[in-house]
Structures are given as structure tokens and as C-alpha cells.
Write a protein that binds this DNA or RNA. Sequence first.
DNA 1: CGTCACGTTGACTAATTTCAATAACGGTGG
DNA 2: CCACCGTTATTGAAATTAGTCAACGTGACG
Lengths: 239, 239
Amino acid sequence: MPQGTIESTTHVACAACALRPFCSPAAALPDESSLPMLALQRRRLRNGQALYTRGDSQSALFAVRAGSFKSCAPLPGGRRQVLGFHIMGDVLGLDALASGVHRSDAVALNGAEVCELPLARAERSMESRVAIARHVRALLSDQLAAAGERMVALGAMSAPQHLACYLLELGSRWEKRGYSPVEFDIGMSRKDLGSYLGLTFETVSRVLTLFRERGWIAVAGRKVRIIERCALQSQATCA
Amino acid sequence: MPQGTIESTTHVACAACALRPFCSPAAALPDESSLPMLALQRRRLRNGQALYTRGDSQSALFAVRAGSFKSCAPLPGGRRQVLGFHIMGDVLGLDALASGVHRSDAVALNGAEVCELPLARAERSMESRVAIARHVRALLSDQLAAAGERMVALGAMSAPQHLACYLLELGSRWEKRGYSPVEFDIGMSRKDLGSYLGLTFETVSRVLTLFRERGWIAVAGRKVRIIERCALQSQATCA
DNA sequence: CGTCACGTTGACTAATTTCAATAACGGTGG
DNA sequence: CCACCGTTATTGAAATTAGTCAACGTGACG
């Protein structure tokens, strides 16, 4: 679980950060290793505060440094659908790159903190450094591939399947950042989670208790521990 | 509907093509307008033939020139989910840009024909021309935003809502390419369409006949004519 | 200590899937 | 040209999933 001193958290976050090439150019460009680390401006947000909102003109890219974000799309009936859940090291705002206007809201959760990369500076880096331009294309392409996975989950999976799948995915995302893949915080309310998975919050609650009753996971509020990873995996792939 | 002589179709397709800046650099770079038009290699595919398959290493980007493609992801149970439907002017293969490996299959439909942009050449263009690199970022970012829309549809819409929404969207895509927004070919079987929308093909069939019975559309096989656009719009946004 | 948001659980309902039967279509070969 | 076959599409009835409505418990916070 993401714990420890501020310093250690910071260290891990930066090591896994997708904007690292912008922040400490040494990572991508050894010959300029004298440039200062942590060159991006940081910003802390209150829970529920919007980093940006649909329709805002894009001013920057953001890397999640601490806490998390949900990105939401406003729905016709006044509701909002959760489109993404972003944790440390993830980049926010790439979908506005084409139009210059954000197409979703990004809302801060769990004491979120971002590093901010002004668009003008990003643009300059991409123009002067081929490796950086390529890095941004890779980020975009990765997000696109991830979106494909999400569509599969939304379109073709039953509720238990989808939830099992998501728990495993979330675990592996934490693992990539140096944390436990089996014990973490889901970071969202049941309601948001349901919206993200295309389910009602009641269904999410029911499925979680089902998994708990079967001994596959331990749940306490938003903290989850995966006990039977295999069982979840077979649930995720089969039924 | 996409009709007319080969020549006129070709013309319109190129005018709307997302790879135009690569194909006729004059479009993006007026000062090199002497370069030959139609510089990309073309390729025709048989119906059902794969342009690429998940796991293939990426060799090129493709622009749809005629016909259409579905992109599919293999599902655990041997089935495949349709992730996208691509018509003339659309670009295929961007999601492999990061990893160099395709993450979905692209299958030819309706006498598809592509223009092929070898990856090495794309890379070179992007490196030498800032405007072209920006163009590719815009394409990626647009596809990402479109993926968000799809997730909303998959996660939060009822079957009739989703189908109404898709018919309208497809119409507007044809309109952007100079064709009628109210009379077109849906290009996929009911089965593929259902997979794309996260529904069974029976449900798709039922909803289409429902719309027809209400006088909102005329359907004959895969040809659709939208009669009551407003009704579809309110179906798409409300219930 | 009350309030409010969050979470759980139950009973009922509605939407969609599943299963099954049949009809239309499109290409192939006689 | 037509008969045949496999695929594609339509339609109905039953089964199932997930949604809706509602009650209640819990914890955080003023």
C-alpha cells in the first residue's frame, strides 16, 4: 500500500513517472544530466477539486504525484460517468492535445498532488527533442491500447468478471510502481467504481461481498487484499 | 451513400484522409507542393482478410481508402470483440506506435483498400517536420477522445439509446466525408455490430425493427436511411 | 448528538440474453 | 437459370442478469 515517508513516496513516484523525461531530462538525455531534477511545478488539490473541466482550454499536461484522480464525462441526464482512474506516475490531459480543449473532467481524490508541465514547454521539448516527441507518442498510444482493453471489459464482461479483472489490473498497476499487487486501496467510492465499470454501486457492493464470502479477497471499506489471485484470474477470464 | 465512379470516390477519400499530410505533403507544407501526390503504396484486401493481427510487429500505418475495416480484440473464450469500425480516411495502427506490436486485429470489409505508410518513413517525416509530428499527435489524441465517447456509450447507455447514438454518429462520419448523413451502409453484420455495441445480435435486430416500426428509420439489410433524425436524437440522449 | 455521505442487504422489476425455430440472402455449381 | 447450401437476419418464449426501490447500519464531522 502507498505508505511511508513523504520522501520515499516521492522517490518512487518520480521513478515511475511518465513525465520524467520532461522533469529530469537526464533520464532521457544523459548528456544534459546537469539540469535540475524536479523541474516541474507542483500543485496540491483538495479532494473533489477539479484539476480541469470539460471545455477548459488545455494549458498543461499533468503527472499524478500523490493521491489519485478520476476522469469523468458529463452524461446527458446530468450524471457523470467515470472514464478513468489515475494514480501516481500517470499522465492526465493527453486527450486534449488535438483540440486544445479538455473533453473530460479530472477530479482529485485522496489528497492528490500533480506536477504540471505547461503545454508551451511540452511543445518546445517535443520539437527540439525527437526522443521526447516519441515518448509522448508512446504515452498516447499506450493510453489508446488501454482504452481498447476497457472497451472489451465494458462490452463483453459480466459484473463479477469485470470486477475481478479490474482488481487484478489495479494490483498490477501498483506493482509496477513498487507496491504490493495484492494489497491496495481502490481509491474510489463504490459509486464511482460502479460508474467506471458500467455497473450500479449496489452491484459492485454485492460482487465484492460475494468475492469476500468465497475467501478470494478481504475488503474493508476501500482497502482490498487479494487472497486467491488464481480464483480471481479464472473468474476474470472465464465466466 | 458511398457511390459514384471510382475516380470521384478516390478524390473525396483523399481529401478527407488523415494521412494526407504524408501522402501529398503539399497539404501540410505548401512550399513543397511539387512533390508527387498519392505517394503511398496502395493495397487491396479480400473481405475477411486481416490487414494485421494482434501480436504482429507494426510495419506501417494505414489509411482506409475504400471499403472498411473492423478492429477486433480476441476474447478469452475464443470469441472476438469488435473495437472499432473504420471507413475511408480513417487511420489504422496507431495503437501499436508505443510497443511496436499490434494489439488488435484489423479485418477488411466491403472491398477494402488501404494506403500504406511504412513506419520508417512516418518516423522520418515526424522527425523532420514538426507539423507532421503534431498532426500524428492530434490523430492519437482524437482517437483517445473518441475512445472516451465509446466508453460512455458502452457503460451508461441502454440498447436503443446506444444504437440510436451510433446510427447518428455513423451518419455524421459519412457527412464529414461528403456523403449523406441520413442514408448509408452500416458496413457490418448484425453480429459484428452487436459485438461493437456490447449487445447480442438478436438485440440489435430487435431494436432496428423497433426503430423501423416507429418510422424513425428504413432498414434493408445493411442499408439504413434515417427518417426521423430528431426522434433518434432524443432516443440517444434521454431514455 | 444529529446529519450526511457511504456502504450493505433484500425484494421486486425490467432489460437483455439465451435458446430455438424459421425466413431471407448470397454465392456456387450443376 | 435455378437449386442448393451456408451464412445472416428475424422473431418468439423462457431464463437470467443486473437495475431499481427501499430499509438499515456505519462512520466522519460539524
